[in-house]
Design a protein around this nucleic acid. Structure first.
Lengths: 173, 173
DNA sequence: TCAAACTTTCAATATAAATTGAAAGTTTAT
DNA sequence: ATAAACTTTCAATTTATATTGAAAGTTTGA
């Protein structure tokens, strides 16, 4: 396969994946494009390669900067801005995790915390109230566990990757 | 807080969370409703409690059955069908993981595998081709790691939960 | 076999989300 | 101060997704 075709396929696949997980397809595609581009790209480049409008390109590039996944790069003597993606995949994973934690996990955790105790009431049996409390409690616990585990595991994979790399570099140490 | 209000808040929150992660809001709400309902509910019950149409209720209940998150329950002497949700939260997590693996992870992994080697070409420098290959490789590795880790961790939490529960049951063992 | 009680389907409709493009805003060099 | 080279904004539009509801289909009991 040619590099160009491979890149297109990656951009398409990453876009599809993104939209299945609640990230706009175009944002994921801009991210993918920058991930597989060697240097930094201008707004113009992005518009052309993904066939999107200027406004759309600008919007998505800014969203990616909000996530910390993309950086502006300024070149001396050039007026326009260039954009490049964070290439360290563990960093990428961490940033995505952080952002989703903040936007989606934190709000539901707050709700779970608030509804955890229900008042006794004459119209509701104790069993019913308790069944509810237990369900909410176990979701709360599980979410907390999963949230911590995710961050821990990215670190674990990072270390494993690093140590593997070190061994490759100094095979006789 | 009253039980009814707590339930509504959970349904709303779960729906919002779902839609942020690419699951239709209504499907998540039906799931939430069944999670916090003690017995099984009929289509009629679901329509009424969530204020949705018959067709919509039917569609989402069937989707949830496809995911394995909801079961049909038949009562002797009753013609209509009742629905109840899987209540074990680790089972729920496993089922969701399996389904998303199948629908979204598997396809992107296939793409990553296919584009992993690019042909040499006169128009592309060796460095450029290698940068691409490395990026795809590290995404592939990370995804594989994360996928395995997730399944392992659910089991780990399940065991931890179980052993804690056992200790509570037999505190002197 | 019929009719009542239900479930499923699907074309039409409504809702929500993404996209455009042109105008307004900003920065920089002269 | 002006104009050129950009970036940003946002109302209008398009596209994608979800929802409705009535009709068709199915099952069950008499």
């Amino acid at each position: 396969m040619q590099l160009d075709e491979a890149k297109s396929r990656f951009i398409e696949g990453w876009g599809t994946l993104g939209s299945a997980w609640g990230v706009s397809r175009t944002m994921a595609q801009v991210h993918a494009l920058l991930l597989v581009s060697v240097g930094a790209l201008s707004a113009e480049d992005i518009m052309e390669q993904l066939q999107i409008s200027r406004g759309n390109a600008n919007l998505n590039v800014r969203a990616l900067m909000d996530w910390g996944l993309v950086r502006k790069e300024l070149r001396p003597g050039e007026r326009r801005e260039f954009f490049s993606a964070e290439k360290d995949i563990h960093r990428v994973a961490t940033l995505i995790l952080q952002e989703r934690h903040k936007r989606e996990l934190a709000p539901i955790m707050r709700v779970l915390g608030e509804i955890r105790q229900v008042e006794p009431s004459p119209t509701v049996s104790a069993e019913e109230a308790q069944a509810f409390t237990q369900m909410i409690g176990s979701i709360h616990n599980f979410a907390e566990f999963a949230d911590r585990a995710a961050a821990t595991l990215i670190k674990a994979d990072e270390n494993w990757f690093l140590s593997t790399f070190m061994k490759l570099m100094r095979p006789r140490s």
